[in-house]
Design a protein around this nucleic acid. Structure first.
Lengths: 269, 269
DNA sequence: CGTATCATTGACGTCGGTCAATTCGTGTGG
DNA sequence: CCACACGAATTGACCGACGTCAATGATACG
């Protein structure tokens, strides 16, 4: 139960790669509909400009936010993949959430406290930067954003709950099936990938293991099993789901479990 | 990997035991400071009265909310213990969250959808009932409540993340140690139990197992081990933590991990 | 007191972990 | 263009933490 990890690159702090003073205005934002800003009209969008401090690029492999350090900034993920993770003292790692474009990064119950988890860039990422100081005022200005954030956090909590059920009560086969099927739908519905096409999967088998409470070795064996069952294929940093229904069957989910990824928050209450 | 469960009583719907038309007014509420209503002044508290529909008693062993059914009501837990859980088709159960007095029950990202989980009364419970319909309007009336809810959900998400780390990456000994220590602090700080005293623990060993991804048999063996190490003692529905520091050592947490249970949301942003 | 639920313990099985060797793939420098 | 390096993937042999099955006690409750 003692797993060591080189962890050298994992603990690097975020290193800004470039900082455009303002970037393109919010009107041209490519993730607007998925993001915190979704409830705002074109006119209202201008207000946000005053509260954010531009965009920033993060190189793959760096941490945007670090467990134990205070977070002075929050981020809207514009492009790229990230994950949230916690480390135990001896290097064991739990990956909580895979973050996709549109996700809001770094919020936690008490923003005054040091971060309870880290956020790591899986690919090169572009983020929209919000100084923490501005957030409360922004919400006062636009209460719809506060409600939207509540909805997003509640969705995260729901994902965390599902993941917990997987890790606590599903076998390795079910777990990996569920995880990849979930990602498949999440990416497909957000990015409009056509049915039958494969999706990018910038995760190593060790990442998948750390997300699901397994070792990379066992992930490998289980992926082989899923491939031999004709359900999916993981290769070259891409995931091809060949039999979504069969996979859903393995994962033990009913049809419309992932349908909600298509929903818009509209009536949150 | 197939675990059966009698589950007969588990699936019973909530059965109201008595319904006082108004109950005692909110001013006398015993959990006000821990609850959703904490940010309200004495005068503001009166407003809430108009949005809630009284209190209700739930007998131990019944479900307040049921996975798959729509939730028409939300609850403020006034007294008693509950837990949230999810069931897989074959009866495997994952317990997500142990709910204590003050917790807000039944909120989820999309309130229009059926419940994604069930809520079960461990002891007899008293709840303060909010019709779902009223909630949005209440938040419009008192934005501080919306912010408070956001804070509470974010705290839940943080707990879910910690639990996920436990189940995914900690050994049975560490997991149970962490879980019971967490409960110990949560109960102690909320209810003002003196140091050294034992706390109520209305959980069976099967509950603990279902919360941590273990079987009740293994929970039993691990509790024996913790007892033989002189760290704690579970008996007669009570938990006595004899060596909090030693237990924290086993659980692998630093001192102030649980300190935040004492914090008030004050400056959430 | 009979019955039901929970706790406890032993014997044994297995899923997934550990260790370690080999292969593959991609990028890099000569 | 090729040799090399380095991380990731793959596979086999073996092990151990935790699960399964089943019997026995302990408690509570009507």
């Amino acid at each position: 139960m003692t797993s060591k990890r080189p962890s050298a690159p994992l603990l690097d702090s975020a290193k800004p790669q470039s900082q455009r003073p303002s970037g393109s205005p919010c009107a041209a934002c490519t993730v607007r509909d998925q993001s915190l800003c979704a409830p705002l009209s074109d006119e209202e969008l201008g207000i946000v400009e005053g509260f954010r401090s531009g965009t920033r690029r993060i190189a793959a492999g760096h941490d945007l936010l670090v467990q134990g350090e205070p977070a002075t900034e929050l981020y809207n993920l514009i492009s790229g993949w990230v994950f949230n993770y916690q480390l135990l003292e001896d290097g064991r790692r739990q990956i909580d959430k895979i973050g996709l474009p549109g996700d809001f990064l770094g919020f936690q119950a008490d923003l005054e406290r040091p971060m309870g988890y880290s956020v790591h860039a899986l690919t090169e990422c572009e983020v929209c930067v919000f100084p923490r100081r501005n957030l409360l005022e922004l919400f006062r200005e636009k209460p719809a954003l506060a409600l939207r954030l509540t909805w997003m956090i509640a969705r995260d909590e729901s994902l965390a709950r599902e993941r917990l059920t997987s890790v606590g009560r599903r076998s390795a086969l079910e777990r990996i099936g569920y995880f990849l099927l979930d990602l498949y739908y999440r990416v497909r519905l957000r990015e409009g990938v056509p049915v039958g096409a494969d999706i990018p999967l910038p995760l190593t088998q060790e990442h998948i293991g750390d997300a699901l409470g397994l070792t990379s070795v066992h992930v490998n064996r289980t992926l082989r099993e899923l491939r031999e069952m004709g359900l999916l294929r993981v290769a070259g940093r891409r995931l091809h789901v060949m039999d979504p229904d069969g996979l859903a069957d393995i994962a033990g989910v009913d049809e419309d479990t992932f349908a909600e990824y298509a929903t818009f928050p509209g009536t949150a209450c």
